[in-house]
Design a protein around this nucleic acid. Structure first.
Lengths: 218, 218
DNA sequence: CCTATAAATTATCGACCATTAATATTTTTC
DNA sequence: GAAAAATATTAATGGTCGATAATTTATAGG
């Protein structure tokens, strides 16, 4: 009643509770996974009864997909922005740093992305995350063909090798960037500090740059 | 009845079904998570009825912990072996490669380790994985103190910085090594190949070495 | 202000869950 | 081979799950 609930008065009441449902669901799905989270739990956190959720989302699966979609949106936008600006391969060096900034604002999203990547092939989460990785991968392939040498000299076998190497690098950077935020408890146990401390974020970014540089040299 | 069930005739019948339960549970827990896996499912895969599980494990939680313990054992042994042999910091360069070999034999274990690292602090899985990481971390701290310079010249603030940096590096290597095996579907989608192909494993190992080398230079 | 619509609640359903008790069967041991 | 112990089965219990229907309450638009 202070300034908590009546904030952002622009949207209608229904849209506001829908957003609050998404917020609660995002946090709980990230912390406990899909099966470990019940609609009762989400409703309780929002402050409504369980069937009230169905006025805003068709069901549990639809809610989960909505959460994933909203969470992945800033990532997709950041990649699209970078692809628009970047003209050469080197410009993609900043992507993990940008991703880290985004994940810093919503650390729990990292868990959702990992869940998506590990989900089965026909699940929405897997398709969303794989689609994002594919965009990045294809851009990398394109840059390599342009920059890396004359395509005519490359045999088909060489191309397959390049594809595999690039895929391994892309996956490694994805795991390195998202995995950092999944290790909060481990980091606290090891270094007795906070992973989200700006000093540590800066250290992680330096590491990401070092790894990218190591990747770019053959 | 062919040569499938009667294999490894040394152990008693009870011990053999217990092992088969562990095998089935490991695979299902890794693929679907703890909450996403039911005891019915495990029992069905083993070929017994659900209550039969209770003759071998006290309950679902106990079974999960037994799976984790058995899976983490080869990792712990590998680390202990390496700590025994290695005399200097450089010798730990091979650890990710050894871990990769172990995970190659049981790729689904990677998922269990990630689940453990992300679990809440008082869960058995989190304690097991954190304990393993702590051993590695402490060895790293010890090596740094021995090798990295005179301890008297290092201020307390410098030590805290070193701790944080080492923790970030250890976590990064863990994520890089285990995360590779969690990306099977993504890799297939990107490179249209098999992550477990020896060529790709070799590529991943080369990447791990490159990253370690990048870490060791300040 | 009044009405049409949106949103939230109560009550309830069938399905599946982990676990237990009682019983039957198999396996080990002497 | 018989007794003892281990292992498996059938049956049932209480609890939680996601989802639906019917109803009441709150909101928005004219």
């Amino acid at each position: 009643m202070l300034a908590d609930d009546a904030s952002s008065p622009k949207q209608t009441k229904g849209a506001r509770t829908a957003r609050r449902i998404l917020d609660a669901a995002e946090e709980l799905f990230a912390q406990q996974g899909y099966d470990g989270t019940s609609l009762r739990q989400i409703a309780e956190r929002v402050g409504i009864k369980e069937p009230g959720l169905y006025n805003h989302f068709a069901g549990k699966q639809a809610l989960y997909e909505a959460v994933l979609f909203r969470a992945l949106n800033p990532m997709a936008q950041a990649l699209a922005q970078l692809m628009e600006d970047a003209s050469q391969l080197r410009d993609y060096t900043d992507l993990p740093s940008v991703m880290t900034d985004i994940l810093f604002e919503h650390p729990q999203m990292a868990s959702l992305f990992q869940q998506g990547m590990q989900g089965d092939t026909n699940s929405t989460g897997n398709q969303l995350v794989n689609g994002w990785l594919e965009k990045l991968f294809n851009q990398g392939m394109h840059s390599m063909e342009e920059f890396g040498g004359v395509t005519a000299t490359s045999s088909a076998g060489q191309t397959a090798q390049d594809r595999a190497t690039l895929a391994i690098n892309v996956i490694a950077m994805f795991n390195l960037t998202t995995g950092y935020f999944l290790a909060q408890r481990a980091f606290d146990s090891l270094a007795a500090g906070d992973l989200l401390d700006p000093d540590n974020i800066a250290k992680q970014k330096r590491l990401l740059h070092k790894v990218i540089r190591a990747m770019l040299i053959s």
